[in-house]
Amino acid sequence: METNFKTIVISDVHLGTKGAKAKEVLRFLKQYRCQNLILNGDIIDGWQLKKSGSWKRKHTRVFNRILKMMDTDCTKVFYLRGNHDDFLDQVLPLEIGNLSIRKDMIYESHGKRYFVAHGDIFDSITSNLRWIAYIGDMGYTFLLWLNARVNHFRRKKGLPYYSLSQYIKSKVKSAVSYIDDYEKELTKIAKARGCDGIICGHIHKAELREIDGISYFNSGDWVESLSALAEDHCGNWQLIYYNEMDFKEKRDNVVRMQNQSSHAVQIS
């Protein structure tokens, strides 16, 4: 299992909400090393924190891990503003050491240019009709609450995790149409900016595909799909899903390396 990447992209963590999988994000970040970490929007959910959300110690631990990556591994961290963490508008653009807070960015790697943005700026509902966006957020929060109850009973029966909201998105025609339009519009923006691809989040649907010759990469989220984008040192991109990670293999490799190191010391 490869654990050292050039760039890792995560988005839509929504720290400060009940649905945020802070422990899983922390565990994920402890498994990998990267030169660049792009936090592509909605990492902190300012909307929910203003209402019924709450900030917990496990949420702080995620940022402590990121700070450690910056200090120990010299990881460059790019925090891009999303619609739920729009409070960042008050400070961006901001550069402090290896931390950069921006609205969006151009990422260049292996001769290719990618336009990186959360994605909400292309969503006319979120941008122009903010009150409708808030209503949609309330509905989504309810779905996540219901989803948690469904999976509580599924775990008792030994069944795997099931995303109710993802199922609804795939069945409602208007949602399917919206996602399709969203993806196509973002690739048009990337092309207009002279880029080879778009890297985004926002709609909580992980994707890695080509649209009209433009690469469309969506990192998904850490509320439902628990996914991230990763680029290796040869410029190849992949989606990593937390639920498919082999933590046992990782532990075995660490133990094996420790045993080899101990054996080498004894020989010397």
Rank of each mutant, 00 (worst) to 15 (best):
N243V: 13
Y167F: 15
R256I: 03
R113I: 09
M138R: 12
H204D: 04
I125H: 05
P93V: 05
V116F: 01
I8C: 00
R113N: 06
I38M: 07
Y241G: 02
G139V: 09
F78H: 13
G46W: 14
D221T: 13
N253M: 14
L37W: 02
V13N: 01
H204T: 05
F142W: 01
K76H: 13
L92Q: 09
A206M: 08
E183I: 01
H59V: 12
K171H: 11
F63C: 08
G16S: 08
D73N: 12
G16M: 12
D85E: 05
I135V: 14
V223G: 05
E224Y: 06
H118T: 05
H202Y: 13
L143V: 04
V150T: 00
S177E: 12
K171Q: 13
N36H: 14
K191N: 05
L15I: 13
W145D: 03
P93I: 02
D123H: 05
E207I: 01
C234I: 11
W222Y: 08
G220Q: 03
D252P: 04
V150G: 01
R256G: 03
D181N: 13
N4C: 09
I125R: 08
Y107I: 06
S127P: 00
S165T: 13
T72V: 15
N40E: 02
R57T: 13
G19T: 14
L39S: 09
S261N: 07
D232K: 12
L129K: 08
Y182A: 00
R33C: 06
I132G: 01
R193Q: 09
D246R: 14
A175V: 03
H152D: 07
L186P: 00
L39M: 14
I101A: 10
G220I: 02
P160W: 09
C74L: 06
S170H: 12
F5T: 03
I267C: 04
D180S: 14
E244N: 13
M245A: 06
G97T: 04
K21M: 10
G46C: 10
L186E: 02
S11R: 00
